[in-house]
């Protein structure tokens, strides 16, 4: 989900935190925070805190070698040069092994404090993905305007304008289809459509996305994982 936004990332491994990643895209506009709790794995062991510097394109090449029904084990030694990936198909007694070279990656770590939020929107992830993709064809920017009754996505481009308005509703049968708006104060923020389209690449990871917006602050787009999260912090565009 994140390999089109960032190329090199440090994966921090620890027994208590599981795997955490913080990465900033090259244009310094988008910050990605990933947390995969130890409980997400069938087995997780980390005797010593470890930083694995990975090239995501290379990692993706290795991960594509496995089939969906195969078990994947990732292993690194104490001061590793390589990450080992072992795929096992227990039915077929098939084992494939790969080793991926690790890299020393210099990266600034930013402190993300808990932010006060003006509003929180939860909507189906596929719905947000469709809006982001459709609106990008109209404009480089997407404005999100939230009031207590609705959230409006607005694009103004060369060929014309477009908007999608969602009103809060609760779907009793399929809660993940609901649209929720929690509002402290109304907000209107503009974001680069390109970055929103990078963010929605995480759509398959979660049925819903939660968007937290605050005036003159980065927006938080959160995809909850079964045990952990993938968060994107996106800096807004400002008027001159």
């Amino acid at each position: 989900s994140i390999k089109d936004s960032v190329k090199l990332c440090n994966f921090n491994c620890s027994q208590s935190q599981g795997i955490t990643v913080q990465a900033i895209d090259d244009s310094r506009v988008l910050l990605i925070a990933l947390k995969i709790d130890a409980g997400s794995f069938q087995e997780f062991r980390c005797d010593k805190d470890l930083v694995l510097g990975l090239d995501l394109e290379s990692l993706s090449k290795i991960l594509k070698q496995g089939n969906n029904e195969e078990y994947l084990t990732l292993m690194a030694e104490d001061s590793p040069d390589n990450l080992m990936a072992v795929f096992e198909d227990k039915k077929k007694d098939r084992i494939s092994e790969f080793s991926l070279k690790l890299m020393d990656i210099d990266s600034d770590v930013l402190t993300i404090d808990d932010m006060e939020t003006d509003c929180t929107i939860t909507l189906p992830a596929y719905e947000f993905a469709k809006i982001a993709k459709d609106m990008k064809t109209l404009s480089e920017s997407l404005k999100i305007v939230v009031t207590k009754d609705s959230v409006k996505f607005n694009a103004e481009g060369q060929i014309g304008t477009g908007s999608v308005i969602l009103k809060p509703h609760t779907d009793m049968d399929k809660p993940e289809e609901s649209v929720k708006i929690e509002l402290n104060s109304p907000v209107a923020l503009t974001f680069g459509a390109k970055y929103l389209n990078d963010i929605v690449k995480a759509t398959s990871l979660s049925s819903t996305v939660t968007i937290k917006l605050t005036d003159k602050s980065p927006a938080l787009f959160e995809y909850k994982l079964p045990s952990g999260y993938l968060r994107y912090y996106l800096a807004p565009k400002f008027d001159d």
Binding site: I24, S27, R28, V29, L30, L31, D108, V109, L110, T111, I112, E140, S141, T190, G192, S217, P218, Y233, L234, A235, P236, K237, F238, D239, D240
Partner: peptide, 14 residues
């Protein structure tokens, strides 16, 4: 078009 801001303006480096 509005100019894009940088994420680092909002979060301090540790």
């Amino acid at each position: 078009n509005k100019p894009q801001t940088s994420i680092e303006e909002f979060f301090p480096v540790e």
